[in-house]
């Protein structure tokens, strides 16, 4: 009897603690929200914020940066739910985040950004939502095309590629994609891949199918097929071999059928807990800084790089490999045995 009462009491206490914790977090969150809103209403703060961001970008642009960054944009719907917004608002916010981050990546010097916009599995969602997503995508496509050919815009000079199984989408959308891709073919500094509708297994299957369906005319023998050749024919073309950095938001530790081929060798994979629309400049900046920090040390260790060589031979001197051939070593001194025999 006494034990049961005690148990109830303890349970109640736990509930209370939980409730209080929740309340405290809620308040802190609210205060933070109000504070940011207030700060961003001040023009001086906005100016300062912008300048700081620019400085940080410029600093990182002289560092080692990943060549190919990829995003899994997860959490748009949970974001909308957590703020009591309609679902399509969440997706819209996600689209804005993607373009902003693509622009920052471009400035930092990343060569290629890819994003998981729509999975083939997403067709399982309600028709309404799929239609909204398609519409939103089409609108974003127009926006991107407009920005990519406007020389005043930060996204100018980027090439857009929409990759995936296009047999699954409507003809109008396909035509539109083709048109936009044609508009932006000149861009060479920066490639922006949007995976729509895509799954990695489909990507691998599609490449296999292409090789089987169109054997190379001059060499009938399929023995010539190598991993490199296979990789170069995948949807992401020259960026298929390696994705240096894959970022997945909203706390799931899995790939969900994305970039399997690209990351499974030695890609860095980062999972973070924020919802995609909340994933902002600082979040990505810290991840890239971390990557760049470790990359610098790794490169240093690999290169046998020392300050001394820089001092003697100038900063641009070729860094030598640690290994040499036996024949290339300098001659040892003359061999003399204890009896005084020489060679």
């Amino acid at each position: 009897m006494f034990k049961a009462v005690l148990e109830v009491q303890i349970k109640w206490l736990f509930m209370l603690v939980k409730e209080i914790k929740h309340l405290v977090f809620r308040t802190i969150h609210n205060v933070k929200q109000h504070l940011t809103n207030f700060l961003f209403s001040l023009p001086i703060f906005v100016w300062f914020h912008k300048k700081t961001q620019l400085l940080l970008i410029k600093i990182l642009s002289v560092a080692q940066v990943p060549e190919h960054v990829s995003f899994i944009m997860d959490g748009n719907r949970r974001y909308a739910k957590s703020r009591n917004l309609p679902l399509n608002k969440g997706h819209e916010a996600g689209g804005v985040t993607l373009l902003t981050l693509a622009y920052i990546c471009k400035k930092i010097g990343v060569k290629c950004v890819s994003a998981y916009a729509f999975s083939i599995e997403n067709f399982n969602r309600s028709k309404e939502e799929v239609d909204t997503l398609m519409e939103l995508f089409s609108a974003k496509l127009d926006e991107f095309a407009k920005r990519a050919i406007d020389y005043r815009d930060p996204l100018y000079g980027s090439r857009l590629k929409v990759v995936g199984d296009h047999s699954l989408i409507s003809k109008e959308l396909r035509d539109k994609i083709y048109k936009v891709e044609q508009l932006t073919t000149d861009g060479s500094d920066f490639t922006f891949y949007v995976c729509f509708p895509y799954t990695a297994r489909n990507d691998i299957y599609h490449t296999m199918y292409n090789f089987i369906a169109n054997p190379e005319p001059e060499k009938e023998k399929s023995e010539e097929l190598t991993i490199e050749k296979f990789t170069s024919q995948m949807y992401l073309r020259e960026f298929s071999n390696k994705c240096d950095l894959l970022i997945r938001t909203s706390g799931h530790n899995r790939f969900s059928d994305y970039m399997l081929w690209q990351t499974h060798e030695n890609g860095t994979i980062e999972f973070c807990n924020t919802f995609w629309p909340d994933f902002g400049f600082m979040g990505m900046y810290m991840i890239i800084l971390k990557w760049s920090f470790f990359k610098t040390i790794q490169k240093f260790n690999e290169m046998n790089f020392s300050l001394k060589t820089i001092w003697y031979e100038g900063p641009n001197s070729k860094i030598q490999n640690r290994y040499t051939k036996l024949e290339e070593l300098p001659e040892p001194p003359v061999h003399v045995s204890v009896l005084g025999e020489r060679e």
Binding site: T296, K299, F300, L307
Partner: peptide, 24 residues
């Protein structure tokens, strides 16, 4: 040391920043 040396390390990219925006 590696971090210090990163001052002098050449990054693989071209010296120039990508075109577009304010850096154009």
């Amino acid at each position: 040391k590696a971090l210090g040396a990163s001052m002098f390390m050449n990054s693989n990219k071209a010296k120039e920043l990508p075109h577009g925006g304010e850096f154009w």
